[in-house]
Amino acid sequence: MTSGAATALVSELRDAQHLPLYRRDLLQRVVDEILEEYAQLEKGIEAWRSGSSQQGSRVEDRALQGSLLVRRARLLRNKRCVLAYLVNRLRRVEQACWNRDPTIYSGPSEDKGTTGRATALLSEAERTYASRYEALLAAYGSAVGLDLRSALLVPPKEEFIEVRVLEDCGDFFMASSGQSAHLAKGTVHFVRRADVELLIQQGKLEHLTPKC
């Protein structure tokens, strides 16, 4: 019982720049440790109570009390490590939702290329969390009349911009003009920024900034 699994969970997340794989195995080990510690703690408390009532030696009592306190502190530490791990992961999931990161959104059946990664990247609970969080953002956006994720993240400087298509998007409907444009990979278009902002955020288009 060295709390190594809990420490490994936290340090792995701390060292990772991007969201690392969900470590179900490590988390299960920590849960097992907590349950075992808890059982030991209950036994120890029982022993301490019965020992006190039988007027055992004061030194033994103090020793037992000390070991119980250490055990409890370790148990709480393990719990905090796991919560820190989960909450930190959820924050990164939220960030990915804001950025519309496709590796978070794509389910196992939809994304053949990254199936393994997408499946293991998030736990079942995290996937549910991500989808509910998205729905929550959408509900808030419709309540205030703005889709905050689609709204510009940098101050708009020009109405029309030049973009290069990085990923084939097919025929894309331009809401402002009511016309559609065929966005084939590698082509360059001069379009209204508001129409394609979402595609830029998704990484399907590249904004070509004019060279001064």
Binding site: L27, V31, I34, L35, Y38, K79, V82, L83, L86, V87, L90, S123, E124, A125, E126, T128, Y129, R132, Y133, L136
Partner: peptide, 14 residues
């Protein structure tokens, strides 16, 4: 949403 996720992933097991 947060409480549900933490409960499902960890808290219900302790």
């Amino acid at each position: 949403n947060l409480a549900t996720c933490l409960h499902e992933a960890f808290l219900k097991h302790i």
